[in-house]
Design a protein around this nucleic acid. Structure first.
Length: 130
RNA sequence: ACUGCUCCCUACUCUGUCGCGGCUCCGAUCUCGUAUCGGAGGUGAGGAAAGUCCGAACAACGUAAAGCACCGUACCAGUUAAGCGCUGGGUGUCCGCCUCGGCGGAUAACAGAAAGUGUCGCAGAAAAUAACCGCUUUUGCGGUAGGCAGUGGGCAGUAAGCAGAGGCAGUCGUUUCCAAUGGAAACGUUGCAAACUGUAAACUGCCUACUUAAAACUGCCUACUGAAAUAGUAAGGGUGAAAACGUGCGGUAAGAGCGCACGCAUCGGCUGGGUAAUCAGUCUUUGGGAUAAACCUUGCGGGUUGAAAUGUCACAUAUAUCGUGGGUUGAGGUUCGCUUGACCGACGCUUCAUCUUCACCCCACCACCGGUGGGAAGGGAGAGGGAGCACCACGAAGGGUAGGCAGCUACAGGCUACUUGUGAAGGUAGUCGUAGAUAAAUGACAGAGCUCGACAGAAUUCGGCUUAUCGGGGAGCAGUGUUU
RNA sequence: ACCUCGAUAGCCCAACUGGCAGAGGCGCCUCACUUAGAAUGAGGAUGUUGGGGGUUCGACUCCCUCUCGGGGUA
């Protein structure tokens, strides 16, 4: 499996799981302009199911929201490899590895460029690894 | 060449690397499903994808009806699957031009206000029945002026009468004088009157002023006028967004389309042009303020709900559970507000007893190979009845899923050529295949170029409209300037 | 994707069935009272009625359109 691919199976799709994330079970921390909400889930083929959200209240044009989501996804795709390395070995050895659901929210109110997003994504991942 | 308007096309480009959604093909793996992974090829947002303002397709709702209600719509014709779109035409309004009655442009929810109801603030006499002021007729009551008549008055005249003075005549008286039975004069008295003067009343004439000779009053008439009543009238009345056809003449008590002429508008008829809206002419009717984006009337159209519609497969103890009713001749339903109607609607099975009937069987009698009567466990058929189940309807309280497939992209499709038409569009032929996701795909990095890149992201699909928009290119029309 | 409601002063809200520029409360400003402040009293200001266009003599109101905001759907 390529370390930079981003397949359909890596995406968080279950509406139920998303609901649980926001209700009570999810933990979260923030690195401006991003905020990570995550929780432990059972039985997944991949270590992390990932999704993105951008509030409509701050960005009214669909074009802007799409662009931000694409930037965040791109940053995640390019920098997730080290994290997977950390989670995978246990998963491959015996099936005791932990799986997580991730949702990344964009909390800023202005259009970011890719460098900003990449920087905060790196921080997010390094903090999560601890 | 520039400027303006209209229409059409286009929507930064190229290279490399890493990625994403469909599609096709190949390979590998296993739980054999076209599941997962890998690879290759090819493909992947818009002119507005937006707003959801119109119109359809498509789907479901039990068949999808009629009336009322409700909603929409409104010059005509064409175009189209359809339309509040588009094209062409007509009419009105506004603007511009000039050769002054045509041309050009813009614009219009452009049916009906002469079916009815409502509204029209302030101002104004009055906002729609025409009332008020005003004007005018008539009536009575006043005022002023004039006229006539009268009373009164003034002037003049008449003079029978009266009075006056005078005259004449007579008688008598008195007095005085003289030439003395007389005479004369004066006074008194009586008479006369035809003349003189004056004149109450009367009569006649003229006048009755206002700078006088003539105070004033009454009645009637006329004119003007005051305040009323009655009737007529809509010419005029400072307003207002809007004022009861306009101008002139006649007419009238005053006036008025009351009449006439010219003109304006208008319902309708006829003739002609046009498919029609409508235009021109002519005859006739009428002169009715605005508002229908107030209610409304008329014509036309509309069943409702929208892909989160809907079908189907899988999962889920879920065609499950509980209650009520129907099933038992009818519970319930018939869509949106109401009503009506053709109507739709489970109607099958089990069991219990009763009755009727049939054949067999048993008994008795008549009789002779049959008939009649009676009995009855069981069997067949039928009738109505009781109980229950299936099934149907409504409600309650809950449970589960939120996955797959279909709908889902090939078409009222695009492009080109020819052709028909003023045009929107149509026809014929050729050619092209061009997103289809479902937490939802187009991005990042590096480099290069240029005019330095706007508005902006598909979610069932089309045709329109509206709105946003940096630029670039093309065509047509109009104007200006330069050159030839 | 589809359906639906709303927008009036800094804030909350009236204004009928069109009538001439719009009421009220809170807040704001000035003055008085007080040593000062609060409270109280007196006075005052504040409006493109979301933008644009239309109908009408006249529009917060009726119609069209745009912008912004709210709500709903299985």
């Amino acid at each position: 499996m390529s370390t930079q691919s981003f397949k359909k199976s890596e995406r968080l799709k279950s509406r139920k799981t998303i609901g649980r994330l926001f209700n009570r079970e999810g933990q979260s921390f923030a690195k401006f302009p991003l905020r990570l909400v995550y929780m432990e889930i059972e039985e997944s083929e991949v270590p992390i199911q990932f999704t993105v959200s951008v509030p409509k209240r701050k960005f009214k044009r669909a074009v802007d929201r799409n662009r931000i989501k694409r930037l965040i996804r791109e940053a995640y795709r390019l920098h997730k490899a080290p994290l997977f390395e950390k989670l995978m070995p246990s998963a491959t050895a015996d099936k005791s590895g932990k799986c997580y659901a991730w949702m990344v929210l964009f909390t800023g109110s202005e259009m970011p460029d890719y460098q900003q997003v990449e920087k905060s994504m790196k921080k997010l991942i390094s903090k999560f690894s601890e």
